[in-house]
Design a binder for these strands. Structure first.
Lengths: 212, 212
DNA sequence: TTAAATGATAAACAGTGTTCATAAAAACAC
DNA sequence: GTGTTTTTATGAACACTGTTTATCATTTAA
């Protein structure tokens, strides 16, 4: 009797429907403006029904959070083919920024909002595989750069933190609207995407000078 | 008859009372968990009264936003005495991070939340003096560094953007809880503040190598 | 003293996340 | 097939949120 299995399958299916609908609404209306009632209406169920499949709104957010990291890792995958580690590092920066701009709401969910991290702090024993996976990709690339003569005197972990901090900072300033407020941009001299590329290139350029 | 003047004074006084109370509540309960009704109760007035002094919640947020920049600029003021521009740059980084940690909710209001920037985008003609002031302090310091032989081949504005991106990224990751989730920290090897200092030092160290 | 303007508020509107008793449907035991 | 238990779904409610409006008291102006 596979009735238990079918029920488990049905349950997972329902969870997926809710998540998919919630994600679409996030993309449409932005993260802050989606309510449980919106999701319920979209899937043509009562709001209370959602609470049969998710403990609360945070659990939905966290589920999307996990999916988002999967998406980010997918964006990174093609870059692992790049043999030269420094070139790969540059392309990782570009890919990271592309991801942040193309999936703005998702990026905020992954790296700006603190709710998912708080939720994660609750279950402390559990490792944060998705996050570590992305960070390890960076660390490994930097380690390989070191073997090619870059950043020789620097600690790999600290250097990775620094690179991540810069890249995230650039994306965060862009998504929060602060980048569009700097004088030069306000005067319309440059487009936002151009500023981001130039700033990334400036950063990469400083790293380039750290060879041997 | 100074009745107009007195009324204007009373009005400003009431606005200050509301702002002060709102700020205290923000510090206590965090930005997201403060409502107009909370503020009203704290000052012992009806919620509707607040709307006589502020158009809506965003205007309160934006008023605090302005005050926050004043506070940040105050934190920077002592640093202008430092003669050596590179040393000043380092201390600006430290001061920025100190400010972000000590005034976490305010920092989020200033640099993470997008509402104040959206509100600012509404009145486009108005310059954003407070923000430019802080950014100019950074730009000038970097310009002076260039005169001392640092970053010679770099554009001042782009280089300033890069430095700001890094510093903000570090603070943002800390305040959103992402810094506490990196493997090394999860294993309890290092304290958060130590990580931030080390990462800043790593960054400063890369800049140091860009002399002449 | 009367008329107009201002200040303050209770009540209401439309929305939020969440809980709970109730009703319908499916699974199980006999 | 009947009766019982478990699962699934929901309407209604609770305690909130930001904001608006009609109403009332007070202060200013004529």
């Amino acid at each position: 009797m596979g009735v238990r299995e079918r029920k488990a399958r049905d349950r997972q299916e329902m969870r997926d429907i809710i998540l998919k609908s919630a994600y679409h609404l996030f993309l449409e209306k932005g993260f802050a403006d989606v309510s449980i009632r919106n999701v319920a209406e979209a899937i043509e169920y009562s709001p209370a029904t959602i609470y049969l499949y998710f403990k609360d709104k945070n659990e939905i957010i966290h589920a999307l959070h996990s999916q988002g990291f999967g998406l980010l890792n997918k964006h990174f995958q093609p870059l692992y083919k790049i043999a030269d580690p420094f070139e790969r590092l540059r392309e990782m920066g570009k890919a990271y920024i592309r991801f942040a701009i193309k999936n703005a709401e998702m990026y905020k969910l992954l790296f700006v909002r603190s709710e998912p991290m708080d939720h994660l702090a609750g279950c402390e024993d559990k490792n944060w595989e998705e996050g570590d996976s992305a960070f390890n990709a960076l660390s490994q690339t930097i380690e390989q750069c070191k073997q090619k003569g870059y950043f020789k005197k620097f600690d790999t972990h600290q250097f990775s933190m620094m690179v991540w901090s810069f890249t995230h900072g650039l994306c965060a300033l862009r998504l929060s609207g602060h980048l569009g407020r700097v004088k030069e941009e306000r005067e319309g001299k440059r487009k936002l995407d151009q500023i981001m590329n130039e700033t990334l290139e400036t950063f990469i350029h400083t790293l380039e000078k750290l060879k041997q």
